[in-house]
Design a protein around this nucleic acid. Structure first.
Length: 243
DNA sequence: TATAATGTTTGAAC
DNA sequence: AGTTCAAACATTAT
């Protein structure tokens, strides 16, 4: 469920409820979700992996973490964390993290950090990357205040695509390679979006969970890399290690 | 059936 | 005081 493109899909799927009044609220959330009762949804937004339900003077932030799911106009056989009921349907959220953000949503988020946002600012991302040249690129790609929405799958696919070894030191990567990596963070995210909508996402993975490199036929290496120790899949032959 | 996985926060330990 | 790290949370496919 979790990476940025999946949240964009959710945002599109709930558009039918924009401007609608919440006529019922249930769920096992520990928060005071009753405050949504009879309130009108102004907009659905997203920032990376955050799904945002905006009301007049506050916003509900949903984060699905690793296992969260949702159902629209249907139910799953599990405890619901939050169910919003409307005149003509319902949204059900399961095993997600819910928070309230008070006031203007724009005061909580920098939209230029979200790789799928219209206001995405690649130059800003570049400046942030170069600020800390010693960190490994596999860690930096996962940082949500630089590449909001990029998750571990997208990380692996981008690095394979631009032929950079995940354990490369950021500051040692040639500038042109940094540029294409940043460019691909957005491009790949939108391809991910299209493929996911067609239920054919996994078919297009070239590195993530793969056994063999389609470029050179050598084995794809699986390693837990960086400070974050997340799975990296890469080809030692095709991806250059800048150290 | 045990394990690992598209993630993040928290608080203890250093 | 800043960093590092394990634990916690929760679900499902393999």
């Amino acid at each position: 469920m979790p990476e940025g493109p999946s949240i964009v899909i959710l945002k599109e799927e709930v558009q039918q409820f924009t401007g609608k009044k919440v006529i019922g609220v249930e769920g096992n959330s520990k928060l005071d979700i009753d405050r949504l009762q009879d309130k009108k949804i102004i907009a659905f937004k997203s920032w990376g992996k955050h799904f945002l339900i905006c009301f007049d003077d506050f916003t509900v932030r949903i984060h699905f973490l690793l296992f969260g799911t949702y159902r629209i106009n249907e139910r799953k056989d599990a405890q619901v964390r939050m169910r919003l009921t409307f005149n003509d349907g319902e949204i059900n959220f399961y095993s997600c993290s819910i928070k309230f953000l008070e006031g203007d949503i724009n005061s909580h988020y920098d939209w230029t950090e979200d790789v799928m946002n219209d206001n995405w600012d690649p130059e800003k991302a570049k400046a942030k990357l170069l600020e800390v040249p010693n960190k490994l690129i596999c860690d930096r790609l996962l940082e949500q205040d630089i590449f909001s929405g990029v998750g571990n799958i997208i990380k692996n696919e981008i690095l394979y695509r631009v032929r950079i070894h995940p354990e490369s030191k950021t500051g040692s990567i040639p500038e042109s390679q940094i540029d294409s990596l940043i460019e691909q963070s957005r491009i790949y995210s939108f391809e991910f979006l299209d493929w996911k909508k067609k239920y054919e996402l996994k078919k297009h993975w070239l590195a993530h969970t793969r056994k063999t490199c389609v470029r050179c036929d050598l084995p794809i290496i699986k390693n837990y890399t960086g400070v974050k120790k997340r799975r990296s899949f890469y080809c030692e032959n095709c991806q250059i290690l800048y150290s």
